[in-house]
Nucleic acid binder design. Structure first.
Lengths: 212, 212
DNA sequence: TAGATTGTTAATCGATTAACAATC
DNA sequence: TAGATTGTTAATCGATTAACAATC
């Protein structure tokens, strides 16, 4: 968990620093960054120290040099490329979305039965082509946007095709392997969780009223 | 963090137990559940004990009675209802998605300029109506599917409308308040994180090769 | 210099795991 | 009974925070 979390924080530092930079700031304190990200200044300094990002004991950190270091750490080789598997509602929505600001773009979509040849210049191919496409274009990351029932099989096909990372939107936890890392985003579970947490809050507040 | 995580686990227990039940199992061991969810048997037993879910020292847990207890804990008052704000690509995709299996349904969508009057029988209203709608229908949870620039303002409008929980898909972290809890799902960040983790893996493997 | 902030170490905190006695 | 599994306590682990000396 450590690794995954600290990595995410590095990305957040980068985004926040870009924002600070666009606002004209050239120096920043661990304090500011912590506040902006909702974490402690200690943690910012610890993270930075761990990745040999150095500051100045008087004037804080230089926005530019931190960004430089972060870019070299994050492997800032321009725009990344990813593919989508599953051209239903969610798949189409993702195709239509512009992720260039986020640092990557969707180059193709795959489906057992492509509903169209292309959407917004992005081609939709049958699944059989996936493996070749991944090889030829050196794709490493794919998104699963297929229904529940097809997800497990799709995952395995994608791993066999040589993909190294998968973001899964199907409503079940797919497992990672050493060859292929899977992160799961379960929208339904997140919503249900909110209902549950609110329910809990209400129960606690009612209890608190009783106690008076 | 504890609370959020253990709650999510309770939901996962429930889903997994429903699956076991549909497969005809009536009793289950902490062992089985742990394996299925990728956590330790100890943790399952600890979670259960914490919520007074009791098992039998010989025969494990009764699927039905655990489910009963979970349902009463999770406040299983039938199908929950949520609304969406933002009727772009993602908003439309979510409207079209059927979440009944996940325990809730979308009852309405809101947009500053509704592109259509309804989609799949789900009405799309102008933002001005949100507050009244939330009050009249006792809605507690909403989904943000608006662009980056509109997100912060939208969040505040939703809180003022009386929503208690928000799932945010806009690419920035919105903050929670005591009145309104926000969970952020940043798709772009998740994808970038995968690229980054793969990059790290490659660096480590290259290093390992060198060390030979 | 005095003041402020980093870099780093030690303390804290919480979650997970291991171990084992209780017991069905 | 013997065996197996829970329930619970203690140990571990890792991440975060607090504190403070170093230093710009």
């Amino acid at each position: 968990m450590e690794h995954k979390d600290i990595m995410l924080r590095l990305l957040k530092y980068k985004r926040m620093l870009l924002q600070f930079k666009s606002m004209g700031l050239s120096r920043i304190f661990s304090n500011n960054l912590g506040d902006a990200l909702g974490i402690s200044a200690s943690l910012v300094r610890k993270d930075f120290a761990g990745f040999r990002i150095q500051g100045n004991r008087r004037g804080g950190y230089s926005v530019n040099s931190v960004l430089e270091r972060l870019n070299s750490l994050l492997g800032d080789q321009g725009l990344h490329e990813a593919v989508i598997v599953g051209c239903g509602n969610l798949g189409k929505a993702l195709i239509n979305h512009d992720f260039t600001r986020e640092g990557f773009r969707i180059t193709a979509c795959f489906d057992i039965a492509p509903p169209e040849a292309e959407i917004k210049r992005i081609p939709i191919y049958p699944m059989e082509i996936l493996k070749n496409y991944v090889r030829e274009h050196h794709i490493t990351v794919g998104i699963i946007a297929v229904p529940f029932g097809a997800a497990t099989q799709t995952r395995d096909i994608m791993e066999q095709a040589g993909l190294r990372g998968i973001l899964n939107f199907a409503p079940l936890d797919l497992k990672s392997t050493p060859q292929c890392m899977v992160h799961n985003v379960n929208i339904g579970l997140e919503i249900e969780n909110l209902f549950f947490l609110i329910h809990q809050q209400d129960k606690q507040r009612q209890q608190a009223e009783k106690d008076l």
